[in-house]
Design a protein around this nucleic acid. Structure first.
Lengths: 338, 338
DNA sequence: AAAAAAAATGAAAACGATTACAAATTCTAT
DNA sequence: ATAGAATTTGTAATCGTTTTCATTTTTTTT
């Protein structure tokens, strides 16, 4: 079924059919009705490639994610929702492990002529910057989770500093003074703000952090275990609380503590960050900092649609405020419940 | 940059440029070299819509998932991997809650002229069957997780009966005789085979299942808790083991047991199904049945690519064998370790 | 060196829509 | 009834490729 056949069946020109399809109001009422009836009957749907060719539109956005796991699922669905409501398809690519591949996949998206790219980035290296700079010359992009200030690309972030600050405030309010930190990977500039908040909070209380109480992790569960291991083995006094830079590492830390016969939270409190879906179901249920994934996804999609519509965007940086979620893995110091 | 401009720069016709791009070997060596140099220099990439229009190919597959959460993440990435290696883009849609929307989104994919659809289905209703029947007249499809025997659509499944059988065998071998079952939703025909395996195994041992020891769930964590609650409240003797039809419900069940002061696995053993990523990190680490998501994704993608290539497919039903994973949540009856 | 065969190239017609612009039709006001 | 305006419709060019077929160029054979 092509527009030509519809035109023939309706006894009009293709131009008229096209007008009907596109809701042009200069078509007489009964002509329109007739054409619509035939479109209905034949189950015709315009060829989007032909249309795209002349309109120079693919009606597809590209979505680049580090991976498509549970952590991003609500974000992906929010994006999907906004896009399809605006008649955009969503084509995906994933970053996988190595960023060589990530950049290759990003280029692939660009070559597919997507009209815009929503890019959730785990980290931004100089090589990333270079390739992104090239791409945004041709294709609008919005970054999520990271920002590149020297490039003019809008970004959706959460306030990592504020979030970690809230976490630390809670730990301190619960009376903890010996607090260890399992840190994010150093090259994640955004997450590294959690580190800053940790140190600032400790300093503000006049508390010293022994070297062994600061361990790097890579956001994975095993790295949380290892970090905890080293904290305990380092020869420093055992902390009363541990702040992990994300929930996975908090889970790893708890795993390690329990294996060594320590109780959480009675012996050691553990604070997470992210509020992954499992956090509330873990035992003990994780006290953590919540990120609004739906908001991030929705805003990212709306931002790029807004850009397509008006060729510019109101805000180039949207920073969302994370929220402290108090559950069971952090306990007031010295309390003996549980 | 269009093919015309390249042609002009190279001093040849667009036909020749097109031949170079498509690796046609009837182009003289130096002509080819020259054209390629210019393509390189100008960073030209052919317009895929124009190409698609004449070749009648979009080079895009549609991927329909119930949702994009952790459970499907490896499958999605495997699909993505195979597709991009074969120069296909992947456009996504999700089923969300209501299947009205699911079907609408499926139709949307079809209208976007994807060349094939990989459809991971949570359940198949008559309405699904109807719409799928329509779609496969025009677009090849492969189903994952479910099959529709009366329609000629290839499917990738795991052997749910065998998987549940393995789980039951393990429970029985551990000496359990009072085994309760938290069942899948009734309309999931595939998962319901786990129910069959449960009853068959019990019957084979001459064991009776009191009514209260069989509770329906909906695969969610809370429904697992509720099911467990009803099993304990039903007035029947407390089971020594519980088999949950998926890991989420197993986690819910454990949650419930612990809240009521029962220890897992010392007082009650819990068997899951799926082996979600968190299963190994949960406390106690979940004994469960593993599904190979990577294999499912890879095979699904390869199947549809094979179909595109040869217009037919070797196998129309691929059934993968799940594997029992023994961890800590199931214990030999009467053992007192832990 | 000419004829025949093979190889390389180009001209032009698709593919299926949209959209200026022109042409035809209908309506309004005299 | 008719000029002029307003409304509808159609013609044909266009988007950027690929591909058939004809033509030109090169190579081989005699």
């Amino acid at each position: 079924m092509t527009i030509k056949e519809i035109a023939k069946l309706a006894g009009v020109s293709t131009a008229t059919v096209s007008r009907v399809i596109n809701g042009d109001l200069s078509v007489k009422k009964d002509t329109r009705a007739n054409v619509e009836k035939i479109i209905q009957k034949t189950n015709y749907w315009p060829n989007l490639m032909a249309r795209g060719l002349v309109k120079k539109k693919t009606n597809i956005f590209g979505l680049m994610m580090p991976r498509f796991d549970g952590w991003y699922s609500q974000r992906v669905e929010a994006i999907l929702d906004v896009c399809s409501r605006n008649k955009y398809g969503v084509m995906i690519a994933s970053g996988l492990a190595k960023y060589e591949e990530e950049m290759e996949n990003l280029n692939l998206l660009a070559k597919q002529r997507v009209e815009g790219i929503i890019y959730s980035a785990a980290r931004i290296t100089p090589r990333h910057r270079e390739i992104i700079a090239q791409i945004i010359e041709r294709i609008p992009m919005v970054l999520v989770d990271q920002a590149i200030d020297e490039l003019n690309v809008p970004a959706i972030l959460q306030d990592n500093y504020r979030g970690a600050q809230k976490a630390m405030r809670h730990l301190l309010e619960c009376g903890h003074r010996r607090i260890a930190f399992i840190a994010p990977p150093q090259d994640d500039i955004e997450a590294e703000k959690r580190t800053a908040a940790f140190y600032d909070a400790m300093r503000a209380e006049g508390l010293d952090v022994p070297e062994g109480h600061f361990q790097r992790g890579d956001f994975s569960i095993p790295s949380g275990s290892q970090g905890m291991e080293r904290i305990l083995e380092g020869g420093d006094p055992t902390p009363t609380a541990v702040f992990a830079a994300n929930d996975n590492m908090a889970i790893g830390a708890i795993d390690c503590l329990i294996r060594r016969g320590l109780r959480v939270p009675q012996d050691v409190s553990v604070m997470g960050f992210d509020d992954i879906a499992m956090a509330r179901h873990f035992l003990p249920a994780l006290t953590t900092v919540h990120q609004d994934q739906v908001a991030m996804g929705t805003q990212a999609a709306e931002l790029i649609i807004e850009y397509k519509k008006y060729k510019k965007v109101r805000l180039k940086k949207i920073i969302l405020e994370p929220e402290l979620i108090v559950r069971d893995s952090v306990q007031r110091l010295g309390e003996a419940r549980g």
